[in-house]
Design a protein around this nucleic acid. Structure first.
Lengths: 188, 188
DNA sequence: ACCTGAACACCGTTCAAGT
DNA sequence: ACCTGAACACCGTTCAAGT
């Protein structure tokens, strides 16, 4: 708690956002959880918007790092592509949480600008990574890779949403398998 | 307004839900919009949960009807499949609104049970319709149709979410085109 | 049958005040 | 440097009271 209140607030806020969305970030809950008063949060963050932006920023930066790990530990592009959905699967497994971005995409219109910017950065990072991996294994144009990358990201994020609704991780796996069988996600 | 307050409340609530989600349904706003006081809404609906469920119920029933229209006015299954995404496209065009279900999928964990039930009914109706259309044109097993139907629904709903984030209907069209090119959505 | 005013607890936010 | 109590406007909800 008191080692670093700022980090504790961030961690609680991230967890709340993955479970209930931006709207579910509750200052009084967070404060109670880490043993301070809700007014104290304002010493560390200027506003809920600012806290939300910090959470989203940390989130996509962590994701970029994880994506890099997948690439560097995969034998080839095909393996990296196959492992990509695990990012989304992990949050589902872990307490049925949602990718921050999927959540906030729904809430998007009502989000403060500074949060929108970070959410957009997350999507961009995913598409950039996927485009690069696709280009390593394919022969299409750069435009095609971008389109396919966005399509894969979209479908996988959608799968997380639907699977969460059913509270069933198997549905996520089946959806990914169907994407692979139909050819949306290349497998070899 | 006073011709039928109940219907006026439903209409306002639906619009709010498509723009801001269940959480964005605001009794004081709705009341002001139709010229009554927020306490009056409780005469027509027992709670916000009840109003939300009524909105979602009306929504999926309208969708079922629209899907039937697509089928009965399509020359064949392939045409019906091609026209399927228009349902999601229309709400985007119309003021950048979101399919109720995509919204509430994000909010799902926090939704009252009676609302969850209606959201699930919407997804089921879509999957049933898609399965049927797929079976009319294909030769796979019934299990395969269901899986592919859910995959198509998931990917199209995801496309709506992503396109909304970019406030750009073209992105929706490009995503659908990519789904068709890769084979997720059969085209002939 | 339909609507209202007043009150409740809850939440983001502010601010003057404490150590 | 970090935290707090008290107050504000906002929201879902209740309820006794109005026509």
């Amino acid at each position: 708690m008191s080692v670093n209140a700022r980090e504790a607030i961030l961690a609680e806020a991230k967890c709340a956002a993955q479970k209930h969305g931006y709207n579910g970030i509750n200052f009084r809950n967070i404060a109670a959880e880490i043993g301070i008063k809700n007014a104290s949060i304002y010493y560390h963050f200027a506003s809920k918007a600012s806290l939300g932006a910090a959470v989203a920023n940390r989130y996509w930066q962590d994701t970029v790092q994880y994506l890099e790990t997948i690439r560097s530990t995969s034998a080839d592009a095909a393996e990296a592509l196959t492992r990509y959905p695990t990012i989304f699967r992990k949050s589902l497994e872990d307490d049925n949480r949602l990718c921050l971005s999927s959540f906030m995409a729904a809430e998007y219109e009502d989000l403060p600008l500074e949060v929108k910017v970070e959410i957009q950065a997350f999507v961009d990072a995913n598409v950039a990574w996927l485009s690069h991996v696709l280009s390593e294994k394919g022969t299409g144009s750069s435009e095609d890779y971008k389109k396919q990358a966005l399509a894969i990201y979209t479908a996988v994020a959608g799968a997380q949403l639907v699977a969460r609704t059913r509270q069933n991780t198997e549905i996520f796996d089946e959806l990914i398998a169907t994407y692979q069988q139909t050819g949306l996600i290349p497998i070899s």
